[in-house]
């Protein structure tokens, strides 16, 4: 191999660069996002219903399918004029991001943004829909 030494040194430097993110973060715990659901409105509903999971559908379904659900709600309200959602537990809800979702989840920064930032998704809901006014504490 011509210039073998230089090539090997070059390769070693290259590999060190490329793998930098891996060994730099190795062993460090990556903080899982933990969206907070401790707003006064949610606590009130929890007290009312006497259970911890009080969102309109079970937690797993909300976690996995809220985006699909919001899409369905939007089409239902805007295009068909149907604005009452009967959840699987029989409760009725007004299908509205601003007036239903965010009335309970009034902590957008601690709730929505937690996961969205972690996953680097930027939903454009807030271009038009007004986010709840939060106290910066």
């Amino acid at each position: 191999m011509y210039n073998g030494g230089k090539i090997i040194i070059g390769l070693a430097i290259f590999m060190a660069f490329v793998t930098f993110p891996f060994y730099n973060n190795f062993g460090k715990a990556n903080a899982k996002p933990e969206p907070k659901t401790d707003t006064p409105a949610i606590k009130e509903v929890q007290a009312q219903l006497g259970k911890k999971e009080v969102c309109i559908e079970p937690k797993a379904a909300m976690k996995g399918e809220h985006m699909q659900m919001l899409n369905d709600w939007r089409d239902s309200v805007v295009r068909d004029g149907n604005r009452i959602y009967v959840a699987s537990d029989g409760r009725k809800h007004n299908m509205s991001l601003q007036n239903t979702c965010m009335k309970c989840h009034s902590n957008k920064k601690e709730f929505c943004d937690k996961c969205h930032n972690y996953m680097a998704v930027v939903p454009y809901c807030w271009d038009c829909h007004i986010a709840p006014k939060e106290n910066k504490s």
Binding site: A60, M69, G81, R83
Partner: peptide, 15 residues
Amino acid sequence: RSGLEASTVSPDPAA
């Protein structure tokens, strides 16, 4: 299936 299919939508009765 997550159970969301059981849900239905309807117009507001006050409409």
